[in-house]
Simulated assay, not measured.
Amino acid sequence: MEELKAGIMGAAPLNHSKVTPETLKVHKAQVDGFLHKKWQQGALAGTIPEQAFWVRCDETNTPEHSMADGLLACDVGVAVTRPAEFVEFNIRQVAGK
């Protein structure tokens, strides 16, 4: 699981000095793309991507005051193949770091 988290951080680094609603959309798309590739490679369970993973990176988990402070939160759920379970975790990043 740590390898998957590290892969997400590498695939979707927060290089911006400012967090905006557009930043959240781009970040979500990057994480979605990374996890979709992992699913295609067989690292995630499920017959369709919606069964394999979900990503939430929007104003519900990164409110305006967090964006103003340069904080970004991304909630992720994945259906890992080993052990066969669905795991949820949160990744938090600070802009420019």
Score class of each variant (00 low, 15 high):
E2L: 12
E2H: 09
E3T: 07
L4W: 12
L4N: 11
L4H: 12
K5T: 06
A6M: 10
A6I: 06
G7K: 03
G7V: 02
G7M: 04
M9I: 07
M9W: 03
M9H: 04
A12C: 10
A12E: 06
L14G: 07
H16A: 09
H16S: 13
S17E: 13
S17I: 10
V19D: 05
E22W: 10
T23Q: 09
T23Y: 10
T23I: 05
K25H: 06
V26S: 06
V26E: 11
H27D: 03
K28I: 02
A29W: 02
Q30E: 07
Q30R: 05
Q30P: 01
V31T: 07
D32A: 03
F34H: 04
F34M: 02
L35T: 03
H36E: 13
K37S: 08
K37C: 04
K37P: 00
K38P: 02
K38D: 00
K38H: 03
W39L: 13
W39Y: 07
Q40D: 11
Q41H: 09
G42R: 06
G42I: 06
L44Q: 01
L44T: 04
A45S: 13
A45V: 08
A45M: 12
A45R: 12
T47V: 14
I48E: 05
E50I: 05
Q51A: 14
A52I: 05
A52Q: 08
W54N: 15
V55C: 01
V55E: 03
V55G: 01
V55L: 00
V55T: 09
R56N: 15
C57I: 07
C57R: 13
D58H: 11
D58W: 11
E59R: 04
N61F: 10
N61L: 07
T62Q: 08
T62H: 09
P63F: 12
E64P: 03
E64V: 15
E64D: 14
H65W: 12
H65R: 13
H65G: 06
S66D: 15
M67A: 12
M67W: 00
A68S: 13
A68T: 14
D69Y: 10
G70R: 10
L71T: 10
L71R: 04
L72S: 07
A73M: 10
A73K: 11
C74M: 08
D75M: 06
D75C: 07
V76D: 02
G77D: 12
V78H: 03
V78L: 02
V78W: 06
A79F: 11
V80W: 07
T81V: 15
T81I: 14
P83N: 08
P83I: 01
A84G: 07
A84Y: 14
E85T: 11
F86N: 05
F86E: 09
F86S: 11
E88I: 11
E88V: 12
E88F: 05
E88S: 14
F89P: 05
F89M: 02
I91G: 01
I91T: 05
Q93W: 06
Q93C: 05
Q93I: 00
V94Q: 15
V94A: 13
A95S: 13
G96I: 08
K97D: 12
K97S: 13
